[in-house]
Design a protein around this nucleic acid. Structure first.
Length: 131
DNA sequence: ATAGGGTTACCA
DNA sequence: TGGTAACCCTAT
């Protein structure tokens, strides 16, 4: 038949990034539920979104290994409860999209090795990637 | 519903 | 031949 593979369009990727930047990574259902994104991703499924996002973080076969990635996270939360989970990408927002453009690879791998500006409204998380 | 794994198809 | 992009299946 005529559609063995349906390649993703820039509009699809843009909508996906926008959805992640708004709701957060991992909330594919919420992104798909949004009428704005569903208008473009109406032909995509929650699994498709996750797959696309996963394959997107893949880097050109060890060719050009990134050393480190700087992620600027907003004030985050003032919740006193102990949260050890590195849920950084869930609340990054606009910075998330910029991070991808600036620091392409990386992702929600291990926690940050260094944290700067702990007293500011924004915290810079430096992820050290080993080659 | 989300995350992870494995497989297939297309391109350089 | 190698690598990237997309799709399906399974587990939690």
């Amino acid at each position: 038949m005529g559609n063995p593979k349906q390649k993703w369009t820039p509009e699809e990727e843009s909508a996906l990034k926008a959805g992640i930047a708004k709701h957060g990574a991992g909330k594919w259902s919420a992104i798909l539920k949004d009428p704005e994104f569903s208008s473009t991703l109406f032909s995509r499924s929650n699994v498709d979104l996750k797959d696309k996002w996963r394959n997107l973080r893949v880097i050109p076969t060890g060719r050009g290994c990134r050393e480190k990635a700087v992620v600027t996270v907003k004030k985050a939360n003032q919740t006193p409860k102990q949260d050890n989970k590195p849920m950084a990408l869930t609340d990054v927002g606009e910075n998330f999209d910029d991070m991808i453009v600036d620091a392409k690879p990386l992702a929600m791998s291990t926690g940050p090795l260094h944290v700067t500006a702990p007293n500011r409204s924004e915290a810079k998380l430096v992820f050290q990637l080993h080659c």
